[in-house]
Amino acid sequence: MRLFAVVLGLVLLCCHTAQAQVRSYDQMIAAGEIKVAVYKDFAPYSFEDGATPRGVDVELAQALAEALGVRLKLIWAPAGEKLDDDLRDYIWRGSPLHHHQLADLMLRAPYDHDYAQRRNDQGELENGQVVMFGPYQNEQWQVAYDRRRLDKVASVAVFQQHPIGVEVDSVPSFYLTSVFNGQLAASTQHYPSVTQAFAAMRAGKVDAVMAMRGEIDWQVQQAHDPQLALAENAYPNMGRQRWEIGMAVHESNRQLAYAVEEALEGLIRDGRLQAIYRHYGLRYEVPDMYQ
């Protein structure tokens, strides 16, 4: 039960008095403050450096708040088992564990038509309460490796001989333990976070790390080590290799989505967003929508 249960989390069954309220755009402007949910402990996108909020998403949220003429209030969201849980807890229903506090806007939701249109067994849209919009980043999987122990990554087959670190319960974990009938499973080492997997590579325990490109770029920049390299291998038999990252608001709050979209387009077109990514050592490509 444990694994499946978390997938759905806590459902608020009744108690309308305790149910979270979605703020309209006008209420948000009148309050002079936008509440933006970002993931907790998720460098380089959103994390706390001591007490200072940092990261691409934090800076993007700040820039959007400024464009809307309101203050920014960050809501730090621990990642749920699946994104559906995060959208439920922070955008449309709230969670009794967080006093039913809702965010006006959540960053780092995928911009994926198929996902937004997914239906449950009753034929209802699974995320029908949410509007996902505003793609601002491309994401993909990436391997970094240490040249002192591995010449190059011609294909993932090299990881039969070379141990590789991954985050638990991630696609890199699933992929490397199952591809080629599990031939890479024995050399796949699991860590609680990408940061710890990277630390293991620095300590010589694994020769490579596979994670999201943004996380890898950030770790490589932090390491200041010319022997660390980025692999350019293919990932045979892998499902989704690239996807777009955008934002989410409640479906009753499209007015906010339009305002944010306009502000976002400005940030993308004048290069300010790219500068934010560069500041964290991340590559940036303008998403297709703006090309």
């Binding site: 990642a79 088992e81 995060d86 994926d112 989704r240």
Partner: peptide, 22 residues
């Protein structure tokens, strides 16, 4: 229950392989 692997799922800003069930 019906169980299946879910192709289109996400977790923490990343593609994910979830399980669908009813």
């Amino acid at each position: 229950m019906d169980m299946w692997n879910e192709g289109i799922a996400y977790k923490k800003g990343a593609a994910f392989l979830g399980a669908g069930f009813t």
